[in-house]
Amino acid sequence: MTTFLLFSFLQLAQPSAIQFTNQDLQLESNSGYIQLDWTAVEGSQYILQRSMQPDFTNSHTIYQGPDHASFVSGLDNGTYYYRVGDDEGHWSDTLTLKVEHQSMPLALTLFGLGFVVFAFTVFVVIKGVYTTSQS
């Protein structure tokens, strides 16, 4: 019984390790958004910080509250560092996100291809209406 109580006390005395649930802490995005999830303990408050430096100088708190996930969007090209902590000052390992959007030539090529498909569809519909009205 004493061993059980001692083991239970040691488990309660140790802070729970907050970690991102992503398998890899080195992520890449070509869209500028990401869903961040982390381990949670019921009733805890979390702080999610972002920085452009790995040592978190000039970091910004982007979320503070009880949730265990956050959706981040609108990121420009660059490397971002994230960490999540609790109100007791325990921090997770750093998650690194490298954002590199699609190139402008690729975007313009896809836009042009979409326009060609749209124009062809309009042509087929108009030709079908004209052919139907002639018969």
Rank of each mutant, 00 (worst) to 15 (best):
V125R: 09
L95N: 00
G112D: 09
G89C: 06
I62N: 11
Q19K: 13
E28Q: 14
P66H: 04
G74Y: 01
Y46S: 13
S29Y: 09
R83I: 08
Y63W: 07
P66C: 01
S31V: 11
F120E: 03
T121Y: 04
E100R: 06
W38R: 10
D55W: 03
A13S: 15
I18Q: 11
F111L: 14
V72G: 00
S29R: 12
Q49A: 14
V99Y: 02
F120D: 02
T21D: 00
S51L: 11
S51A: 15
T61L: 07
F120W: 10
V125F: 05
G89K: 09
V122W: 10
W91K: 09
S16P: 05
A13P: 04
L10T: 07
M104W: 08
D24H: 02
Y130C: 04
W91C: 04
E28P: 00
D37T: 09
S135T: 02
Q53M: 11
F20R: 07
L25R: 07
H101E: 05
S135L: 12
D93S: 12
F20M: 10
A119V: 10
F111Y: 10
S29E: 10
D76P: 00
H101N: 08
L10N: 12
Q11G: 15
L48G: 03
Q14N: 14
D93F: 01
T96L: 05
A107Y: 08
L5C: 12
V129H: 00
G78M: 02
Y130L: 08
Q26D: 13
F115V: 13
Y33C: 11
Y80I: 01
G89T: 09
Q23S: 14
L113D: 02
P15W: 08
G43H: 12
L12A: 15
F71M: 06
Q11I: 15
V129R: 00
Y33M: 09
Q14H: 12
A40M: 09
S29Q: 06
P54F: 11
W91R: 08
T57N: 15
F56A: 09
V72T: 04
G78H: 01
D87K: 04
H101S: 06
T3A: 15
A13N: 15
M1Y: 05
E100W: 00
E100D: 04
L75E: 03
H101L: 13
Y63L: 06
S59D: 13
V129A: 04
Q23N: 14
L106H: 08
W38E: 08
H60C: 05
S133R: 13
Q14E: 15
W38Q: 03
Q134P: 01
Y82L: 01
F111D: 08
Y63P: 03
T132L: 06
V124G: 00
G85P: 09
S16T: 12
F118W: 09
A17M: 10
S29C: 05
F118T: 01
L108D: 02
T61E: 13
Y130Q: 10
W38H: 03
A17G: 02
S103T: 15
Q35N: 15
Q11P: 00
L10A: 14
G32P: 12
Q64W: 06
V117T: 13
M1Q: 09
Q26T: 10
